[in-house]
Design a binder for these strands. Structure first.
Length: 262
DNA sequence: ATGGTTGCATGGCAA
């Protein structure tokens, strides 16, 4: 099964780009973040026309919003409100074969990496703490976690480790928290299982760097993880980097992995 | 050090 994750930055604006992503990657399941559409206005017919007849979505006006698009039937699982607010950052489903799929949109955290000064950064850390406790209380089993985690954990996940140590997304406090989320459920980084950690790999490039891909100042914020039971079943994975160079792109590129779930 | 761009929705906020 090929599973893709993409922060689309407005589903309605980029439905044609989604079609191009689907034609290029040919995924069985697509997990979206930042759909930016309330449920009443979700473009269900357009999504079905792309071949996804089984669709879960959870959206709100203006911000956030997640969706899971699938060719095969899904079973929707209980939803969770993170940090006591329903701000549409999470959906989960059971896939054919029984594996659980989690789709996350972790808060970006604002600009100042200090929870005392910046409520958005405090929210990000609290969200990660809740993920730690949530996964700590569950048996790993067969599960897949994807999404925009808004953290680039490895030195090779950013264009300059040294220059980003104090930049939100790559600060030691966030990387340490994300490491504890991984440890809580013994998550394995499926993409780094395929692309060696020695190799630079990014999935996001700021809109503010107008020269893409010239200086290639990217970060790997989007992830696919699997539990140990599935680690040996990850057959391939990549970032669709070229999508960042398409007309009117999202600032994130899609990330996908092939996982043998049978 | 600062400002740079985008989307949603029409002012300013979050990314």
């Amino acid at each position: 099964m090929r599973i893709a994750t993409w922060n689309i930055n407005s589903l309605r604006l980029r439905i044609d780009t989604l079609r191009r992503v689907v034609e290029t990657i040919r995924p069985d399941v697509v997990c979206l973040q930042e759909t930016k559409v309330r449920d009443e206005e979700f473009p269900l017919m357009d999504v079905r026309a792309l071949g996804f007849n089984h669709v879960l979505y959870h959206g709100m006006p203006n911000y956030n919003g997640v969706a899971i698009l699938s060719k095969a039937p899904l079973k929707q699982l209980v939803t969770v409100d993170w940090c006591e607010r329903d701000d549409c950052r999470y959906l989960s489903a059971r896939l054919p074969g029984g594996a659980v799929l989690h789709n996350f949109y972790v808060p970006a955290g604002g600009d100042v990496p200090d929870p005392e000064q910046n409520d958005m950064f405090a929210h990000k850390l609290r969200f990660l703490d809740e993920m730690i406790h949530w996964f700590d209380g569950q048996k790993p089993g067969r599960a897949i976690l994807v999404g925009d985690l808004n953290i680039a954990p490895l030195e090779t996940d950013v264009w300059s480790h040294k220059q980003l140590l104090k930049v939100v997304s790559h600060t030691p406090v966030e990387v340490e928290r994300l490491g504890r989320v991984m440890a809580a459920h013994r998550w394995v980084d499926a993409v780094r299982h395929i692309v060696p950690p020695s190799q630079q790999l990014y999935s996001w490039w700021s809109y503010r760097n107008r020269t893409w891909p010239g200086d290639d100042r990217g970060r790997r914020l989007d992830h696919v993880w699997v539990t140990p039971a599935l680690a040996g079943r990850v057959k391939d994975a990549a970032v669709l980097r070229e999508a960042r160079g398409w007309d009117r792109p999202s600032d994130h590129a899609p990330v996908w992995a092939d996982i043998d779930l049978m």
